[in-house]
Every structure is written in C-alpha cells, then in structure tokens.
Design a protein around this nucleic acid. Sequence first.
DNA 1: CGAGAAAATTTTTGATCAAGTTTGGGGCAT
DNA 2: ATGCCCCAAACTTGATCAAAAATTTTCTCG
Lengths: 239, 239
Amino acid sequence: MTGTRGQRQVEAYRDDIPQRIPVHQQVYEDLRTRILFGELAPGQPVTIQGLVETLGAGMTPVREAIRRLTSEGALEFQGNRRVSVPTPDADCIEELIFARQALEPELALRATKKASAEDIDALEEIDTALDVAIARGDVGAYLHLNYAFHSKLYAIAEAPILTAIVDRLWLRFGPSLRVVCGRMGTQNLPDKHKETLTALRAKDGRAAAIAIRDDVVQGMEQVREVLEANTLSSEMIDT
Amino acid sequence: MTGTRGQRQVEAYRDDIPQRIPVHQQVYEDLRTRILFGELAPGQPVTIQGLVETLGAGMTPVREAIRRLTSEGALEFQGNRRVSVPTPDADCIEELIFARQALEPELALRATKKASAEDIDALEEIDTALDVAIARGDVGAYLHLNYAFHSKLYAIAEAPILTAIVDRLWLRFGPSLRVVCGRMGTQNLPDKHKETLTALRAKDGRAAAIAIRDDVVQGMEQVREVLEANTLSSEMIDT
DNA sequence: CGAGAAAATTTTTGATCAAGTTTGGGGCAT
DNA sequence: ATGCCCCAAACTTGATCAAAAATTTTCTCG
C-alpha cells in the first residue's frame, strides 16, 4: 500500500514547498476577500475578461471562481450573461437577520463546549485589536477584525456545515457593512464581544448564545437602517 | 414569448425558441438532479474526464458545474484534486437536523401567509401522487415527489436566501434518502404533509411550522438510524 | 527459487491556456 | 424613437502540460 491518503515521500529538501495552490483557488479567494470587505461596491459589474486582464490569469480559472461566488450569493446573474455584486433589498436583510439569528447562537453554544483556553485568548487578542481599530477609525481594519472574531468562533465550534452556511451569509451583507461604516463611522458600532468572551470563559453556553444573538441583531439592524436611508435617497434621485 | 419569464419584443416567429440554456447550466442541473435523487451513490468518485465523455460536453462547462456543486456541498474534494459524492457521518446529520429544524418551519410560516388557493391545490396534487408512489413502492417517484412537495412550499414562501440554504441541505442528505428507502422500503415512511396542507388551508402558520418541523425531524431521524446501521456493518467488515 | 517491496514506467486525470464561435448591447443612421 | 450593424464579452472547444494513480519491472532477502 503506497500510502492511500499519504503525504508525498519526496520532500526531503525543505518544508517550504508552497503546497501548489491552484490559480482558480487564488482567484476565488482574492475575489471573495474583495467582496466580503466591500472593495467591490454593491451593484458593481464584474466581467470575466476584466478579471483576466486585471489578475493576469487564464479564462477558465476566472470562470470557475465567478461560478463559485455566484453560487454562494456573493455575485448574481444580471439578466443576460452579466454578473455583478448584488444590492440587497429590505426583504433580503429580513431573511439574513432571521438566518443569522437562527444559526449563529447555536455555533456560539457549540463553541462554548469546545473552546480551549488558547482559543479564547486568540479571540480576546482579536477583540483587543478590534477596539484599537475602532478608536483609530480604521474602517478596513475594523471590517477584517470583526469578521476574524466571528470566523474564529465558527472554527472553534467545529460544525462545518453550519459554518459554511453562515460564511456565505457574510458574503451577502459584507459589502453593505462598509457602506454602514461610511455613513456612521466606527464610533457608534455596538458589539457584544466582551459579553461573549466572558460567557466563553465561564463555559456558559446559554449566555454566549444570547450575546452572539444580540451582536448579530444589533449589527444587522444598523445595516437595515442604512440600507433604508440609501434606497430612500436613490428613490428621490430616480424621480 | 415562450412564456418562461423573459418578454422579448421580437418573438414573431414561433414560441419554440428554446431559450438557449448554456451547456455549463445543463451539466450542472443534470449532475445536481442525479446527486439529489441518489443516482450517484455516496462515496462514488466523480471525474471531469468521465463526465466529458459521458455527457459529450466540453471540459470547461463540466469543470464549472463541478465547482458549483462542490461549493454547495453536493460534492467534496477527496484529497488530491479528486472529487466524489460525500458520505455524511453522524456529526453531519446532527448539523443537518439542526439547520433544517431552524429554517424550514420559518419557510412554512411564510408560505402560509402567501399561499393562494391554487398553490395549495398544487401541493395537494403532489401529495396525492406521492401517496400513489408510496403504495406502489416506487422509490424513484417517491424521492422526486417528496422533494417536489417541499420545493413547492419553499417557492410559495418567496424567501430566496432561505430557500437557497435549505436547497443546498437537500443536496447533502439526498443521496442518503435513497439508501434509507433501500433499507426500509417506502411503506413505513412517515410524513406530515396532510397536516401541513390542513394548516395551510386554515392559514394557521404556527400549525404549518410545527407540521413541517415534525416532518423534517422524523425524516432525518430515519436517515440517522440507517446511517448508523451502515457504519456499524462496514466497521464489522473492515475488521 | 519465490515473495514482497521499492523504483521506474505507463497511463489516466486534472489544470491551464489560447483560439474560434455566438450573442447581447450600444452606437449610429434614418 | 426605432431599427440595423458592429464590437466586445461570454461561451465552448481542443490542445498542451503537469501531477497522481496504476502497472510493471527489478532488486533484495528469506
């Protein structure tokens, strides 16, 4: 048996063999990150050839990345063969709030059961950096660290299917978060991360679930408000 | 026009313009259907070149379809660049039960608010055909009609994001449903469709939500049982 | 001399690219 | 404003390269 799932037997040289990440994977991750953190604004069109030129990649890998992201709701078909970053409406936000509220407390609950002391330390470190970013008004850092906090919590919970679902939800409201910060700044952003950490240390799953639910609901309500203000103003422009 | 949904202004000729479905979309739908209804057994490997030969399609469209389905959990990476139909374990079933229980009652609730009399008639028609399939022991028809019933309910609810999530969950346990029927036949399959229809007609959202939750939980518990029996027997073989 | 394992070869499959084909949309003329 | 035409972009295919699995060969040891 030549080692069914085994790791190659040659590698004697170094261990810095970069694991050969496929181009389509790189393109996917690059695009995903840009969408998640609002570098591509809602409504912005995304063309295959544009990415081929921008990224210097071939057409097939770009195509695969776009299909994947479309399937995840990060991009959407715009009628005939065009794709763009979607602009969520009020109904979408409604669904997102419900789904996050239904699933993320469970992830917090599971994380409470599995979290090691190191895990919680890592979370606290992220949250500390997050406070610094808020104080400095660094929107980019805030968005990255806020996602990092929740993402780490999902990882601790060890629930791959639920995590996959929730991760895809982030792709849908992520672009709007930057818009929210553009309107409201980083000062008045409420979060329940401190409460979450306290609950995790106390191994109080119920409290962690409630803290995360509050965090989610508060954040999404802000998205809803800003989105309503935006549609209102664009309606006034349209007419 | 062909009545699809598009309303182009030219159409003078006939209505047999087949709407020009791209190959990658056809391959995706074909593969998706096969996985959903267990025509591809769990654990079965799926190769790009195999599909290229089988379906007579080019390489790029097949690739895109596989990426999409992998992203949706219908296929999974098997270590080194290979993909196969995943075999869910007990933890997966646990997550699936939770997610369905958390989301599908809400869809039933929303469907109750929006369902027209025609919608409910369509559901009843599906359920009647479903009873016939069960009586005849027609596993294939049962699987298709059972999915059709739930899928129609999702469509009535008009919640695209929640529907997309739940639809992806079906892709994860769909292959196992055929295994369940293979073990238990179609006779002892409990469902709460009659209760759901009654609640819909009475516009009792709460009752509809409960009926669907019971339906989901009962179905998933059977999957869990059969899966446990399977892993047990395969363990005995392995040793 | 045979059996088993390691190495080398062959073959199958995945990844990427470049070129050809088709289609939708914008611009221009009426 | 309407209709036609051209172009840009999407779709599709086939070829090419690289990597992994399968097979065969060979070597060593009992």
